[in-house]
């Protein structure tokens, strides 16, 4: 469903991604691991088309090149991103934003989705305005639930979130990624540091991104366990990488 080939990204002249290639088939969830500054967030933003960056390489969605498209066109084609740190928009209430997203993508089950992420009390507030870490993540995932993208990109769903909220977010992502209707099966790429989210999702594949390159891929739980034991530096010494 999503195929990235030799993606290179420069930000302010500095090459952040140095030729990333990966493929996520429909119905699969892949996990992206890597230390701070390795380029994980840049990769997700590049797929979405966000940020001031210069990109080369190819991003195919269902076989169609989307790398030249605007952000909104990519969203309409089915790419959805939940950011780790979203900008506050005090001028726009969450309620108004959800209505706008609903107008674009459909409002079916809106009320139930709002309640499932415990966001009702946030509706009258400006988007992300003075939201706690948990509130921000719940709001982000709620927007994805309404957007129902084909490709779900999530940047660190657990960061800054307490255990109670991780349960809510994890269950919501599980629901988003396991729709009962086969045609609606999505592809997902999720960045995680802690791995807590793996308790809720059946991740099919994991990648380690280091210094702008994917240096390892395989069973996500095995990779995560190895990183926990040896750290990312251990990845460099891993036989698979050498």
């Amino acid at each position: 469903m999503l195929k990235i080939h030799n993606l290179k990204v420069k930000v302010k002249g500095e090459e952040i991604l140095k030729g990333v290639s990966l493929e996520i088939p429909r119905g699969e969830t892949h996990i992206l691991l890597g230390p701070n500054g390795s380029g994980k967030t840049t990769l997700l933003k590049a797929i979405m088309g966000m940020g001031s960056m210069h990109t080369t390489g190819s991003i195919l969605l269902d076989g169609e090149e989307i790398s030249g498209l605007s952000i909104d066109e990519r969203a309409r084609r089915g790419v959805g991103l939940a950011l780790q740190r979203s900008p506050a928009i005090p001028e726009l209430t969450l309620d108004s934003l959800l209505q706008m997203i609903g107008n674009k993508f459909g409002s079916d089950g809106m009320e139930e989705k709002i309640d499932s992420l415990n966001c009702r009390y946030l509706l009258g507030r400006g988007v992300n305005e003075n939201f706690s870490g948990g509130e921000m993540k719940r709001s982000e995932v709620l927007q994805l639930l309404v957007q129902e993208p084909k490709v779900v990109l999530v940047d660190e769903p657990e960061s800054g979130v307490d255990l109670e909220n991780i349960v809510v977010i994890g269950e919501a992502l599980k629901r988003l990624l396991k729709p009962s209707v086969k045609e609606k099966k999505r592809a997902a790429l999720i960045i995680t540091h802690t791995g807590h989210i793996l308790n809720y999702l059946n991740a099919d594949k994991g990648y380690v991104l280091l210094h702008g390159r994917i240096i390892c891929s395989g069973n996500p739980r095995d990779i995560f366990e190895a990183i926990n034991r040896h750290g990312f530096e251990g990845c460099m010494e891993c036989e698979k990488c050498n």
């Binding site: 966000m50 940020g51 952000i71 909104d72 969203a75 928009i89 674009k104």
Partner: peptide, 10 residues
């Protein structure tokens, strides 16, 4: 903020 809203399809 504009890019964020565009990522929601606006």
């Amino acid at each position: 903020a504009v890019e964020y809203l565009m990522s929601r399809g606006l």
